[in-house]
């Protein structure tokens, strides 16, 4: 009976959390389309999320593209298919690794930062202060971050895809002996518009998830330093899992034949 009660309590808590998150999403969407809009806060978020994420996105994509080329080459030599390295690197980076790695990097860098910042504001009464200054926290804190992440993530993913392919190109031409011109030609010929669109759409969805989850956990933080830590940890875990789950469903939607 105790076990059953514990399972029941856990299920109820999960349903309640899902309900709270759904209301938070609906609230955010409703505030996106209603004035006032905070342009300066949006601009700051664009720079924080987009510009300052470029180094980590670039480095991650570069090394992953390089490693991917090495792996495909090593695997391909087993059945004399090493020539497919450019095609597989391109499709692998653009369809899957680019968006997912950038999404996870953003979850680590941006979701954690948003959750910690807003949670700290919550426990130091800065959110209450916003309300006393006739400013809705959803409009001032959540909307600019969610909008900025949703708009800037496709650009980051495009950069990640390109640098990832560049990583594969460098390794393939400098280390594996591929011809540079034919490598580029094979890459361009093999990629389809649908691959690129799917990559950018995934980026936008992952950006929306990363920022929204960070804001949700930050706004819901308990009091004290432990509350900030818990919110940050929960936000990164939830955002990462949601990004991977969303990736599966988007892949299914785009490429299910």
């Amino acid at each position: 009976m105790t076990l059953l009660a514990a399972i029941g309590a856990a299920v109820l808590a999960w349903i309640a959390a899902l309900g709270r998150f759904t209301i938070f999403v609906a609230d955010t969407l409703s505030h996106i389309i209603r004035p006032p809009f905070y342009g300066a806060a949006f601009g700051r978020s664009l720079i924080q999320i987009g510009y300052f994420s470029l180094p980590v996105v670039g480095l991650t994509a570069l090394f992953t593209g390089g490693a991917l080329a090495l792996q495909i080459y090593a695997g391909g030599t087993r059945f004399s298919a090493e020539a497919v390295v450019p095609q597989i690197v391109a499709i692998g980076m653009v369809r899957e690794l680019g968006p997912v790695l950038v999404g996870l990097m953003i979850a680590a860098r941006v979701t954690s930062s948003i959750a910690a910042e807003i949670a700290t504001m919550k426990v130091t009464e800065q959110i209450d202060a916003l309300l006393t200054l006739s400013t809705h926290p959803m409009k001032y804190l959540t909307v600019p971050r969610v909008l900025a992440a949703t708009l800037v993530m496709p650009i980051l993913v495009a950069v990640g895809d390109t640098i990832g392919i560049l990583g594969g190109y460098i390794v393939s031409t400098q280390r594996l002996g591929f011809n540079a011109a034919s490598y580029i030609q094979n890459t361009v010929d093999f990629l389809e518009v649908k691959d690129i669109i799917s990559s950018l759409v995934k980026g936008a969805v992952f950006g929306f998830i990363a920022a929204l989850v960070g804001c949700y956990y930050g706004m819901g933080a308990d009091r004290g330093a432990i509350g900030v830590g818990r919110a940050t940890k929960g936000a990164v875990v939830a955002a990462s899992v949601l990004i991977l789950a969303a990736n599966f469903f988007l892949t299914e939607a785009f490429f299910n034949t």
Binding site: E125, A129, T132
Partner: peptide, 13 residues
């Protein structure tokens, strides 16, 4: 209204 919070609650950023 105006409000003076116990810890100031100034916006760090």
């Amino acid at each position: 209204i105006g409000m003076l919070f116990q810890g100031g609650a100034l916006f760090d950023s």
